[in-house]
């Protein structure tokens, strides 16, 4: 039994100390997942907190047969996708508009947050802007695969889709991302 699974089982019996260890172990991964799916540090912070609260409350439904990471990212993906649906993106200007107007690619919001301490190259900025323009479930799939290193099978379980649907989403997302990055390559 992995550490995560035994901590989660203890948490399901109301052991808050065990749950605290789980939060400490996974908060960075989850925070970065939300940072890249929402593009905003404040939203990422709110959603990370919400995820762990939901996780604690659903601990009783956790079965050790399911991978802990799959269980956790299933809740996280639902939060990310419903968050995107519930709210208009904060940035009003699209990447295409900026290119049309001959403007520099956006200084991504992650850049504005000194606490986040992130420094992005111009290409990374353009990539993040292109990622932000993808449909929420495509963006989530890309981050689960490339950022969180989940397999296709795990992503399929997390997102409640078939493996071939996941393949197809990732393929179309890459076509779109590559196309959007084309103007930024020397």
């Amino acid at each position: 039994m992995s550490d995560d699974v035994s901590l989660m089982l203890r948490a399901s019996r109301g052991d808050r100390k065990a749950f605290r260890s789980l939060v400490e172990r996974h908060q960075q991964s989850v925070y970065n997942f939300f940072l890249r799916t929402t593009g905003h540090p404040e939203d990422a912070e709110d959603l990370t907190q919400q995820l762990f609260i939901n996780l604690y409350r659903s601990a009783g439904r956790y079965k050790p047969t399911a991978s802990f990471r799959t269980f956790m990212y299933r809740i996280a993906s639902n939060l990310a996708v419903s968050f995107a649906r519930s709210r208009h993106r904060r940035d009003g200007v699209s990447l295409d508009q900026m290119l049309d107007e001959g403007r520099e690619p956006p200084r991504h919001r992650l850049h504005d947050d000194p606490a986040a301490g992130a420094e992005w190259s111009e290409l990374e900025e353009a990539y993040l802007a292109a990622l932000a323009e993808l449909p929420a479930d495509w963006r989530t799939a890309v981050e689960l695969r490339v950022g969180r290193q989940l397999s296709y099978k795990e992503i399929a379980q997390v997102m409640g889709k078939s493996v071939s649907a996941v393949e197809s989403i990732l393929f179309r997302a890459r076509e779109r991302l590559a196309e959007k990055l084309e103007p930024f390559k020397e």
Binding site: Q28, V30, N32, E119, W120
Partner: peptide, 10 residues
């Protein structure tokens, strides 16, 4: 590019 994005501290 995606892999090169740094993992930010929460």
């Amino acid at each position: 590019i995606h892999k090169s994005l740094i993992e930010v501290s929460p």
